[in-house]
Design a protein around this nucleic acid. Sequence first.
DNA 1: CTTCCTTAAATTGGATCCAATAATCAACTT
DNA 2: AAGTTGATTATTGGATCCAATTTAAGGAAG
Lengths: 237, 237
Amino acid sequence: MTSSGLNIITTLRQMILTGELQAGERLAEIPIAERLHVSRTPIRIAFRALEQEGLLTKLPRRGYEVRSVSAIDIEGAIEVRGVLEGLAARQAAENGLSQQQVDEMKMLLTTGDLLFADAVFTEADVESYHHMNQRFHQLIIEAAKNPAIQAALTRNAHMPFASVNALAIDKNNMQQEAKRFAFAHQQHHHVFHAISAQQGARAEGIMREHAHATLGFDRNYHKLEQRGALTIFSQPL
Amino acid sequence: MTSSGLNIITTLRQMILTGELQAGERLAEIPIAERLHVSRTPIRIAFRALEQEGLLTKLPRRGYEVRSVSAIDIEGAIEVRGVLEGLAARQAAENGLSQQQVDEMKMLLTTGDLLFADAVFTEADVESYHHMNQRFHQLIIEAAKNPAIQAALTRNAHMPFASVNALAIDKNNMQQEAKRFAFAHQQHHHVFHAISAQQGARAEGIMREHAHATLGFDRNYHKLEQRGALTIFSQPL
DNA sequence: CTTCCTTAAATTGGATCCAATAATCAACTT
DNA sequence: AAGTTGATTATTGGATCCAATTTAAGGAAG
C-alpha cells in the first residue's frame, strides 16, 4: 500500500515545486519509482505529463531533468501571464460579475486590507495573503468564462518556478516587502473597480501591469535567490 | 514491428485533427490499441498527453472522448491566441529582427502577394497560403525570444479544432474567401512594418486584431460547418 | 600513457499479466 | 410488471517482463 492518497503526478509536481527535487537534478524512472514505492508505469506517465507542463525536460537517453530556468525565462513567463490575466480581466468586465462573485471579491479585498492594518507584516501574513490572492485571481479567470485562458495558464503556471521554491519575498526585509504587497493589493482594488464599472480596457491594463508585481519590482531577485532568502509564488501576487 | 514510423501521440493527434476520429467519439484503450497495432501502454500515455493538450476529455470510467467545442470555445481560444501573438509581435519589435529574419519575412510576404495577383484563387492557393502563413507567424514567435509564448500556444493550438477539420474556408465561395485572405495578408504587411519600425504597441495591436481574421470575419461559420463546407485552420490566417 | 575496441550496465519503450472497480444486464422477488 | 439485487463484462491502473539502444567502463594495443 503506497502512502500517497493522491496520484503520482501531483506528488511529483509538489516535490519539484517545493524544491525536494532540485532544478537541474536528473531523474530516472527506476530510482524515482522505488523512492515512491510504485512501479515504473505511473512514473513514466507522470514524467511525460510533467514534461508537457514544462516542469521537466527530456534528455535523449538519460531520462528527465528538473527544468531550470533563467531570469529571462521568468520575465517572459510573467509577460505571458500578464496578457492572459489581462484578457481575463477584460472579458470579466465585459461579461459582468454575478452578485455572488462581487460579494466574494469584496470579502477577499477586505481580508487583504486587514493584513496591512497591523504595523507588522509577518510570514504568516504572507501565507494568508497568498491564499487570498490566489482565490482573487481565480475568480477573475472564472468570470471571464473563457476556458482557453485557464488552459493556457496551467501550461505556464509552474514553468518559471521549478528552480526556486516558494514565495518571492526577502524574509530578512519584511518591512520593505510589506510595501510591495500593499501596492499589489491596491492594484487588486483598482482591478475590481474597473471590472465592476465594466471598464474592460482599464481592467486589462491594470492587470497586465499587476503581473509585474509578482517579482518584477526590483530586479535583484537573482541575488536573493543565491542567498537562499528568496522564495517565489507559483501564483502572481 | 509496428508500421508507424512516427510516435503514437502524433498519429492520434493527426487522426483527431483530420476528423478520422470524430468529435464526441468515445475512445477506449483496447480498441484503439488494436486499431493501431500497438499495445495498451503507448495508448495510455498518448491519451493522457492528448488530454493535456486539450484534444481529449476524460470520462470517469468510460475512457476518453474527442473533445467537441462550441462556437464560444472557439472565440475564446481566438482571443487567447490574439493576446499571445500580440505579445510576441511586441517583443519581436522590442528585440528587433535579425537580417536573416527580415529577409525571410520579406520573401514570405512576396510569396503571399503573388497568390493574390492572379484573378482566381484556387484551393491550391489556400494550401500555399497556409504554409506561408504558418511560417510567418512562427517567425514572429521566434523573434520574440520568449519560450513561454510558444508553450502557452501549443496548449491552445489544437484546442478549438477538434470538432471541425481543416481550413476555415467556404469552398463554394472562393471569390469571397479570397478577399478575406487578401485582407489578412495586408495585416501581415502592417505587422511586419510595425515590427521593423520598432513600434511594439502598434505591432501588438495589429496582431491582436489579426487573430480575429482566423474566422471571426463573419460569424456564420456554424452554418457552414453544418453544411460540411467549412474547414478550419489549426493555425491562424 | 593514450586511444580504440569490446563488452557490460543502465535505461527507456513496448507488451502482457493481474487486480480493482464501475457499468450493464438479467433474473428473481414482491 | 417493476424494482432491486447479484453476476458478468468492460475498462482502467499498476506491476513485471522482454527487447532495443545507448552510454560507460575496462582492457588491450600502439
